[in-house]
């Protein structure tokens, strides 16, 4: 889910923390207003509407006056294609409820292949949704790379279960991998070991991010079982 990304030196709390350089931390906040319009379906645990609720809380508490609020650009197909396979990206860009209503065999076979159905249903504006939240994550990474901000937040992001050629665990596009790839343009690889522990809190127990890269942690069962809760929805 949405998580904050930090600068080089990780110490203290985000707000209002002071680094070794005795400067105030600069905050960047990414929010797309349309993110709350998407609807996974009746009774589905994943509710994008909660992102809108979180935003309303931030505004009513007056926190937006202490941060730089940005509206992200939607991610392009080329950006999503850096991690996901070509056929999967093409499938996401063309699928819609109207197409599914035709009940053709080829469509059914594709749905099975890309694991689109129960946890990852097809809804109106699915591909727009898949471009919106990765846009926020990529935008946050860009800000960090430029040095415009010390901390960047995207509550709509964090969909870490998506696989290279499959949807999984309410996730269609793995925005975390895309964000990391963007950060790798400037930072070294060792830097990202620190992020793994932040992504263990999830309703589903198999975070894909752990084995996407060549520096995996062994026996994730111990860590996952001790931390798995519903906290991502609370």
């Amino acid at each position: 889910m949405a998580r904050g990304e930090r600068a080089e030196t990780v110490s203290g709390v985000p707000l209002p923390s002071v680094g070794t350089d005795a400067k105030k931390r600069r905050m960047t906040y990414f929010y797309e207003p349309c993110i709350g319009y998407y609807f996974y379906g009746q009774g589905h645990p994943m509710k994008p509407h909660r992102f809108r609720m979180a935003h309303n809380l931030i505004v009513h508490y007056g926190l937006h006056r202490r941060m730089q609020v940005n509206r992200p650009f939607p991610a392009a197909e080329a950006d999503i294609g850096r991690f996901h396979s070509d056929d999967y990206v093409d499938f996401l860009s063309t699928v819609s409820p109207q197409i599914l209503s035709q009940n053709s065999h080829s469509h059914y076979r594709q749905l099975k292949r890309f694991n689109v159905g129960e946890d990852c249903p097809v809804f109106d504006g699915l591909f727009d949704f898949c471009r919106a939240f990765p846009g926020g994550s990529i935008g946050a990474a860009v800000r960090l790379n430029r040095g415009d901000a010390d901390i960047a937040i995207n509550w709509a992001g964090g969909l870490h279960h998506a696989k290279k050629a499959e949807a999984s665990g309410f996730c269609y596009v793995n925005d975390i991998v895309l964000g990391i790839l963007e950060l790798l343009k400037v930072h070294s690889v060792f830097f990202f070991f620190l992020f793994f522990f932040l992504y263990l809190f999830c309703l589903h127990r198999k975070p894909t991010t752990m084995w996407v890269f060549y520096f995996p942690l062994e026996d994730p069962k111990t860590a996952v079982e001790s931390k798995a809760t519903n906290s991502c929805f609370s």
Partner: peptide, 30 residues
């Protein structure tokens, strides 16, 4: 599956050959 849009850096970092299989077979659904 192919990813034609990957850059050189992406190819070095991303893993396309090893698959992680969780020890637990249970389906932890809500």
């Amino acid at each position: 599956p192919s990813s034609s849009r990957r850059t050189k850096l992406d190819a070095e970092v991303l893993n396309d050959h090893w698959k992680c299989v969780a020890p637990s077979i249970k389906d932890y659904s809500s």
